[in-house]
């Protein structure tokens, strides 16, 4: 009986999938007047942002980025939930062998530089290549270095989840503020400034800084969960 129901459900789903794929139409020649000219022109003239990719990711398709950040958050949470049950007999140590003193003092020296580089990458996301996701990943590698070098280095999960939720809430709040001021979600409502200035592009740098904090906190929490599961 169960199998018949499953087959019926699959048949119905397949039928509707085929119908909806039929409606898509054929792949034709490339349309000449695409959306690219709109993006290229509006990025410089209206938003005053030097990096077109950033303006597409954060402004024109900002809602999509909110979805991406949510997917990353869900993946991190799910991985934490799975590993927490499986690996809670590993103990407190994160590495098998204690690192040598060269690695310890060296990573202590390099850690601030790596954090600074990550912050630079996401603060200048609207001017140069890089952005929130890349900067956050660089910061997480700094924490990975410290976790590998020191077997008693610990990161507070409460602080991480506070930063994560703070950044997420402010992302949504900026979007709603754009809705109130301009009419659409994530509409730019702040002064755009001069092209190639650090303070330019309206809400784009602010949103990218928030994304950077969120990604850094998420990836750090992920690495910490994988390496350093506490016994309880």
């Amino acid at each position: 009986m169960k199998k018949v129901i499953v087959l019926l459900l699959l048949a119905v789903t397949g039928y509707y999938l085929v119908i909806s794929f039929m409606d898509l139409g054929k792949y034709g020649p490339v349309v000449e007047t695409g959306v690219k000219d709109f993006y290229l022109e509006k990025t410089v003239s209206e938003l005053h942002v030097a990096n077109t990719i950033t303006s597409i990711i954060v402004n024109f398709r900002g809602f999509d980025t909110l979805g991406e950040v949510t997917v990353l958050f869900l993946a991190a949470t799910a991985l934490g939930g799975i590993l927490y049950k499986r690996r809670h007999d590993v103990g407190e140590r994160s590495v098998l062998f204690p690192s040598s003193s060269i690695v310890k003092s060296g990573s202590k020296l390099l850690f601030p530089a790596i954090i600074l580089l990550g912050a630079y990458v996401f603060i200048h996301g609207h001017l140069s290549p890089g952005g929130g996701f890349q900067g956050g990943a660089i910061i997480a590698t700094g924490f990975l270095l410290m976790l590998l070098a020191y077997d008693n280095f610990s990161v507070s999960h409460n602080v991480l989840s506070f930063i994560e939720s703070f950044a997420g809430i402010f992302f949504v709040l900026f979007g709603l503020a754009g809705m109130m001021m301009g009419g659409t979600f994530l509409e730019n409502f702040m002064p755009v400034g001069k092209l190639n200035d650090l303070f330019s592009g309206g809400i784009i740098p602010i949103i990218y800084i928030l994304v950077g904090f969120k990604v850094a906190a998420e990836l750090t929490g992920l690495i910490y969960t994988v390496l350093h599961e506490k016994e309880n």
Partner: peptide
Amino acid sequence: IFIAFSNPISSHALARAMYK
């Protein structure tokens, strides 16, 4: 300065891990 720190440290860590 960054390369002068990071490159020897990482090669030291690799060699030490290999020896261990």
